[in-house]
Computed example of a mutant assay.
Amino acid sequence: MTADVAVLGVGMHPWGKWGRSFVEYGAAAARAALADAGLQWRDIGSIVGADTVRGGYPGYVAGATFAKALGWQGARVTSVYAACASGAQAVAAARAQILAGLADVVLVVGADAAPKGFFRPAGGDRPDDPDWLRFRLLGATNPTYFGLYARRRMALFGDTPEDFALVKVKNAALGALNANARYRKRVTAEEVAASQVVADPLRLLDICATSDGGAALVLSSVEFAHRHGVARPVRIRAVSTVTPRYPSTVPDLPDIATDSAAAVEPPSESFRASIARAAYEEAGIGPDELSLAEVYDLSTALELQWYEDLGLCAEGEAAKLLREGATALGGRIPVNASGGLASFGEAVPAQAIAQVCELTWQLRDAAGDRQVAHARVGITANQGLFGHGSSVIAVR
């Protein structure tokens, strides 16, 4: 029995700051995905919603909230929360239902209406929340956290702010070609260097924004896709939702010592590398077989880190890979052909789903001016608070 599920439909609500409810964005994305699949809402046997803690009680029960918005029709409903990995968890839940025979077709939806400025922990004082602890005890807000990672790469591998700027230049050029992106303007390295310092060495244009937006997928069994007239659908072959391994804990800061760190050998691989390894092992492929990757570029420096964690190059060689043009459109392994979070910003429950939307368009040869030539295999990479892994491999 194959573990593949088919991607019948994909849809998005454009990213931006629209000032409306996340429900509107998710419902619009869902309708677009249904139309792309050639199905009606009443054809859907199950809906999985990726939750948003910023949407109040409806956000915590996103599956039922979206089902209500689309019109009650008796579908099974599931809601999942895994911070930035929520979308991948939703895909995993949908795939499990399909492979278990509980539903032939499942709708996956994620949407967010993000606050202005950088994210803050939801719900006031939360001493059990790693974000709250990091903010309050260390003064390490998200930009500070990103800056520490950047400084680490500079110290260990010789990366420079100019290298980081090249990531933004690449992604902005691709985002300019994407109608769903929030930022559709090319930038130069000089413009990145002239933008305001936020957390040295990172500047404003090195860091992704917060955004409103939505994304949706219609998933089915491969057999249903064939019956529906889709002879060769894009298929999801692997979904990695792994957690860290001891002595790693929740990966909030790079190489911060814990009480156990001195007594225990460090892990043989980073948490991010373990996310990718689990996906590769499940799919039965290696990084040399990839056509493209969509990665979680909260900062320009973090995108470089993903190159190494995905096995696209050896440790310390990410900046070299970038400078050679290998990760640009037309290069050996284009990364963030969508424009990435640099062009979209974060709409947290939607972003891992949006990455699968991009893989699907690319594997269908339907990505227009940002099309990766001869795309056959793609990977997404993401991670969520509390040690939520997130990676999806799609093939055609």
Rank of each mutant, 00 (worst) to 15 (best):
G11M: 00
G11C: 08
M12G: 02
S21M: 06
V23A: 15
E24C: 06
E24Q: 14
Q40G: 11
Q40H: 06
S46V: 05
A50I: 06
D51Q: 14
T52D: 05
V53Q: 10
P58T: 09
A62H: 01
F66D: 13
A75Y: 01
A85D: 09
A90G: 13
A93K: 12
V106F: 00
L107D: 10
A114P: 06
A114Q: 14
K116A: 04
G124I: 04
D125M: 03
D125E: 12
P130Y: 01
F135G: 12
L148S: 08
Y149S: 14
Y149E: 13
R152M: 02
G158L: 03
E162N: 06
D163P: 14
L177S: 02
V197A: 11
R203H: 11
C208W: 04
S220I: 11
E223V: 01
V230C: 10
A238E: 05
V242S: 08
S248G: 07
I256L: 15
P266H: 02
G284T: 04
E289M: 01
V295E: 04
L310H: 12
L312F: 12
L312D: 02
C313F: 11
L329W: 03
G331M: 11
E346C: 15
E346V: 15
D369H: 08
T380Y: 09
G387I: 08
H388Q: 01
A394S: 14
